[in-house]
């Protein structure tokens, strides 16, 4: 990610958005681009159709709980999700997101963000500006070893770059 500032419109969800919701098992046999249309469909059938590149995904506690399925962050990434803000993430999802180059930012103030708010995020500084509400929140700054992977655009690109320098 070249620019440290990310600006976009929010899609907002609540607690425990698990992997069966993000990537319903019934569609996992489809390709990622086809399956992406059904991302979040158990709770929001519009998401897979109307989410636009640059929009932001915000949820509350325990985002991504359940399965290790990478189809969850893969379908989200396909739809253009580059940043997810949540109060907390489930462990495997968090790692999967990072490995795909998706920023997973923890903010205890995610509850103050609503659907359609416009945010400006300075993730290197750990600051979220809510432009719609004229509020400022903090989010955790990702540790260096994780930031290196994100900056590279994900684990595979990171490994490739590493291989070249060896």
């Amino acid at each position: 990610m070249s620019n440290d500032l990310i600006k976009g419109k929010v899609w907002k969800y609540g607690d425990n958005i698990n992997t069966d919701i993000i990537s319903p098992p019934a569609y996992m046999e489809l390709s990622i681009s086809e399956a992406a249309k059904y991302a979040m469909s158990p709770i929001d059938p519009d998401f897979g159709k109307a989410f636009k590149e640059g929009d932001l995904l915000v949820a509350e506690n325990n985002f991504g709980s359940g399965s290790s399925r990478e189809t969850a962050p893969l379908t989200l990434r396909h739809l253009g999700v580059r940043v997810i803000i949540a109060k907390s993430f489930a462990r495997i999802f968090y790692r999967n997101a990072i490995n795909l180059g998706i920023l997973a930012l923890e903010s205890q103030e995610a509850g103050k963000i609503s659907q359609d708010d416009v945010l400006e995020i300075d993730y290197k500084a750990g600051i979220i500006k809510n432009i719609t509400r004229d509020e400022r929140y903090t989010c955790t700054i990702m540790p260096d070893h994780i930031m290196t992977i994100i900056d590279a655009g994900g684990l595979v690109t990171y490994l490739k770059a590493k291989k070249k320098t060896q």
Partner: peptide, 30 residues
């Protein structure tokens, strides 16, 4: 490690086992 979240089951035999995603498995395979 396994590409399924219930890989943690093998702890019943006194192993450390955990579920990982596909990209991470790629790293392990290599």
């Amino acid at each position: 490690v396994g590409t399924d979240s219930h890989t943690c089951m093998y702890g019943a035999l006194g192993a450390f086992s955990t579920g990982i995603g596909s990209t991470e498995m790629l790293g392990v395979l290599v």
